[in-house]
Amino acid sequence: MSIPCIKKEANAKNLTGDVMNNENYKKYAADRAKRSASALNCTKAFAVGGLICCLGQALSNLFISLGAGEKDAGTLVSVSLIFLGGLLTGIGVFDKIGKFAGAGTLVPITGFANAIAAPAIENKTEGFINGVCTKMFVIAGPVIVFGTLASAVYGVIYYVLTQVAQ
């Protein structure tokens, strides 16, 4: 009988040295799994990321034309994109775009919104307090922690520098 999937010629890379030795095996497995940045992935990330920023720019222009100051317009853009990113997460579209675009959706603020909305939705089955609220920051928490830390460190350095300058 023939069994499907049997390949007579496995994708053989030459085994050098004693592969049963763990150090060699690790290197061998890592070499096999190693890949280069694919031009396709990078193009997709660039294009989608760029487009999201264009949307941000359009929203910014819109809010300014409606009379918002530049700073408020920036805040409104963030809020709008966070809204959109979360909504697309909820209706189950964001993960598809994310799979396609990779860093293109991860890096814009939409990725931040997705990282908060996704665990919130998924852990609803464990209740609102212990599920939704506890798990909300399971992915995005480090961003807020490190952002706050960095800004506090910067604030102290800036304070010291201004004191010294006076």
């Binding site: 940045a37 990078c42 660039f46 264009c54």
Partner: peptide, 27 residues
């Protein structure tokens, strides 16, 4: 906006593809 925003994403994608670094670390 397209070029600058796209460039940030492009750099992150290269890191993800080449080093298998997780999204959380990139952010």
């Amino acid at each position: 906006a397209f070029l600058v925003g796209g460039a940030f994403c492009l750099i992150a994608q290269i890191f993800i593809d080449k080093t298998a670094v997780t999204g959380a670390r990139i952010l």
